[in-house]
């Protein structure tokens, strides 16, 4: 029974890693590619760690360490993708020509010369930073 769960988790992890690798090759622009690589980190690595936890038990040496690694990956992968893509967007790396939606552009429009204005609600004083532009 435990073996079945481990095998299933490993299959899920490897399958997601495979699709993420395909996406990394096939996706048209940097934004969608980073989406793929984050998929590999989260949905590809976490099931493999969980398989180790299930196989060895959560209290054991390997299980505990992989739980810790699980937490680190779950925090770090979206975080680094977020920071990377934010810097990429602000560096004006173009979107794929077929992209339909560009939500941050409307928020950033009209204040692209302001050095102190942030587009995030947390960085400014008020909840609506567009009003300062």
């Amino acid at each position: 029974m435990r073996l079945v769960v481990v095998a299933a988790l490993l299959t899920i992890g490897v399958g997601f890693s495979l699709t993420a690798g395909l996406g990394l090759i096939r996706m048209p622009d940097v934004y969608t590619r980073v989406h793929s690589s984050t998929l590999a980190a989260v949905l590809g690595a976490v099931p493999v760690f969980l398989a180790l936890v299930v196989g060895k038990g959560p209290i054991s040496r390997y299980g505990g360490e992989s739980l810790l690694a699980c937490i680190l990956v779950l925090v770090f992968a979206p975080l680094s993708a977020h920071a990377l893509l934010r810097a990429t967007y602000r560096g004006r790396v173009p979107l794929w020509s077929g992209a339909k939606v560009d939500q941050p552009r409307d928020r950033l429009r009209g204040k692209d010369s302001g050095a102190d204005a942030g587009d995030e609600p947390d960085s400014g004083a008020g909840p609506e930073p567009q009003a300062r532009g």
């Binding site: 925090v75 920071a83 810097a87 602000r90 560096g91 102190d116 942030g118 995030e120």
Partner: peptide, 23 residues
């Protein structure tokens, strides 16, 4: 750190700051 939209280097979003605090 980026030319078209100059922003301060310390200005990471709350996501990054909170995540780093945990990690």
């Amino acid at each position: 750190f980026a030319k078209p939209f100059p922003e301060r280097g310390e200005e990471m979003t709350v996501v990054v700051r909170m995540g780093v605090r945990v990690v």
